[in-house]
């Protein structure tokens, strides 16, 4: 990693999360979209349970701050189960993509 110069930023993330059914995905997506470096948020309900819903959150942006995303999710009562996909990019054009 020492040879890479410039800022490495997260530009896309796909998160698998569990949220209370009461929490609206409209409110959650709007709150997530107000986070630093986030430009668009897409939430899909994958599974519906009695009290909870499993959601897939896709975040896109120029420099997503994961700790802020985690904080927003936790504050809204949603639990991150896994990060299923991450795309990071470095200033200069080189793109590193990691998939689980």
């Amino acid at each position: 990693m020492g040879r890479l110069r410039g800022e490495v930023a997260i530009t896309k993330m796909i998160i698998d999360a569990l949220k209370p059914r009461e929490l609206s995905i409209i409110e959650l997506s709007k709150t997530l979209c107000s986070g630093r470096g986030v430009q668009s948020v897409e939430i899909t309900v994958v599974e519906v349970d009695a009290k909870t819903e499993t959601i897939k959150v896709t975040l896109r942006g120029n420099s997503i701050d994961y700790s802020e995303v985690a904080e927003i999710m936790s504050r809204n009562g949603a639990v991150i189960r896994s990060i299923d996909e991450v795309t990071v990019s470095r200033k200069g054009g080189e793109v590193l993509k990691v998939e689980e």
């Binding site: 949220k19 009695a50 936790s74 504050r75």
Partner: peptide
């Protein structure tokens, strides 16, 4: 508390 059991998390500092 019921919701915490379903989510396996602590909701003390959450909006809920």
């Amino acid at each position: 508390k019921e919701l915490e059991r379903s989510l396996f998390t602590n909701l003390d500092n959450s909006v809920i």
